[in-house]
C-alpha cells in the first residue's frame, strides 16, 4: 500500500471566469483568442490531493494525464513543478470535436494502459463547459466506483479510502474500495505553489513535438534524461476505436449558439439625495410595487 499509482486528470481551458471588455468583440460575441489558456482550477485542487497522498506515501507515483492540443503540455510541466512525477499528453486530430462521452472513452482507453492504478483524481468540472460529466463517465467506462465532490481524502488502508464530500447542503463521509475515481471540489485546499528546484529541473521537460523545433539531437538528449520526456499518445497508441471518438463518437450535437445579449432598458437615473429617494419610495408605494 506504500506505492500507490495515482492518475490525475487535468485540462487546459480558456479562462472564462473573467471575460473582460477586451474579450468581447464589438458585436457582443466572445473573442476566444483573447482569453488566456489556464490550468482548470478544480484540477489543481485534485493535484493537491494527489500530492498530499504522496506526502503520506512517498513511494507513490503521480501521473498527470491530459487530452488536448500540443500546447496543453504546459499544464503537464506546471504539474511537474508542483510535484507530479510524469505526464502524458493524449493528442490526436481524431479526438477533436469529442463531447463528454467520447472524451471519457478516450481517457479511459489511455488509463487502461496505466494499469494497475489505485486512484484517479480529477477536478469536479472544467470551467469551459461546467458539465462535471467526464469524471463519472470515465469511472463507468472503467467499471470502477466514483466519489464526486471530494473536499478531503482521509485514511487510505486495506484497499479502502475515506473521502469527505461537499454536497449542496452539507457534507458526507464515505468509505470506498480502490481502484476508485474521485472528483475534487473547489472547497478542497488550493494547490501548493511551484517548487523552485523542480522548476529548474522540469522546465526542460517537453513532448517530442515540442522538441522538433530545436536543432539539437533531441532524441539522444532526452534518452539521457528520461524524466524530461512528456509522452504523447495518439488514438493508435491507446488502441481506441475511431468511431467512438470526435464528432462521429459524440451523441450530442450543437444545433445553435446564441450570444447572450441583454436588452437595455430606459433606466431612470437618480441621485442618493433625500428628495430623489423619497420620490422613488412614494412612486413604488403609489404603483403598489411595495405595500
Amino acid at each position: 500500500m506504500n506505492h500507490l499509482r495515482i492518475i490525475v486528470l487535468a485540462k487546459q481551458v480558456p479562462d472564462t471566469r473573467n471575460v473582460g471588455k477586451d474579450a468581447m468583440k464589438a458585436d457582443g460575441t466572445v473573442n476566444r483568442g483573447a482569453l488566456p489558456a489556464i490550468y482548470n482550477p478544480e484540477d489543481l485542487n485534485a493535484l493537491e490531493q494527489a500530492l498530499r497522498i504522496k506526502d503520506r506515501f512517498p513511494e507513490s507515483e503521480i501521473v498527470l494525464l491530459t487530452m488536448g492540443p500540443g500546447r496543453a503540455a504546459e499544464i503537464i510541466r506546471e504539474s511537474m513543478y508542483r510535484g507530479a512525477d510524469r505526464g502524458i499528453l493524449l493528442t490526436d486530430r481524431k479526438f477533436a470535436g469529442s463531447d463528454t462521452l467520447a472524451t471519457s472513452y478516450a481517457l479511459s482507453m489511455a488509463i487502461r494502459k496505466l494499469e494497475p492504478y489505485s486512484l484517479i483524481l480529477a477536478g469536479r468540472q472544467a470551467i469551459d463547459g461546467d458539465t462535471a460529466q467526464v469524471g463519472p463517465q470515465v469511472a463507468e467506462k472503467l467499471g470502477i466506483p466514483q466519489v464526486t465532490y471530494a473536499e478531503e481524502i482521509g485514511e487510505i488502508a486495506d484497499g479502502k479510502v475515506t473521502v469527505k464530500r461537499r454536497l449542496e447542503r452539507g457534507v458526507e463521509t464515505v468509505v470506498a474500495t480502490m481502484p476508485l475515481l474521485v472528483t475534487v471540489h473547489n472547497s478542497a485546499p488550493p494547490c501548493r505553489p511551484r517548487n523552485a528546484k523542480r522548476l529548474m529541473k522540469y522546465k526542460y521537460a517537453h513532448t517530442v513535438s515540442e522538441m522538433q523545433h530545436s536543432n539539437e539531437d533531441y532524441f539522444a538528449w532526452q534518452n539521457d534524461r528520461p524524466y524530461l520526456r512528456i509522452d504523447e499518445w495518439s488514438v493508435d497508441d491507446v488502441q481506441a476505436d475511431e468511431n467512438m471518438l470526435g464528432l462521429s463518437g459524440s451523441p450530442t450535437k450543437v444545433k445553435k449558439i446564441e450570444n447572450v445579449v441583454f436588452k437595455a432598458k430606459e433606466s431612470k437615473v437618480l441621485a442618493p439625495s433625500d428628495a430623489d429617494i423619497e420620490w422613488l419610495v412614494r412612486e413604488l408605494i403609489h404603483n403598489s410595487t411595495i405595500g
Binding site: 462521452l101 460529466q133 469511472a139 466514483q146 450530442t252
Partner: peptide
C-alpha cells in the same frame, strides 16, 4: 449533487448523449 453524479454514470452505460445544467 445527486443528479450530476448519477446522470453521467447512466449516460455512459447507455452510450447516450447527456447535456448538463
Amino acid at each position: 449533487s445527486i443528479g450530476r453524479d448519477l446522470a453521467p454514470r447512466v449516460a455512459s452505460a447507455l452510450r447516450s448523449g447527456l447535456t448538463a445544467d
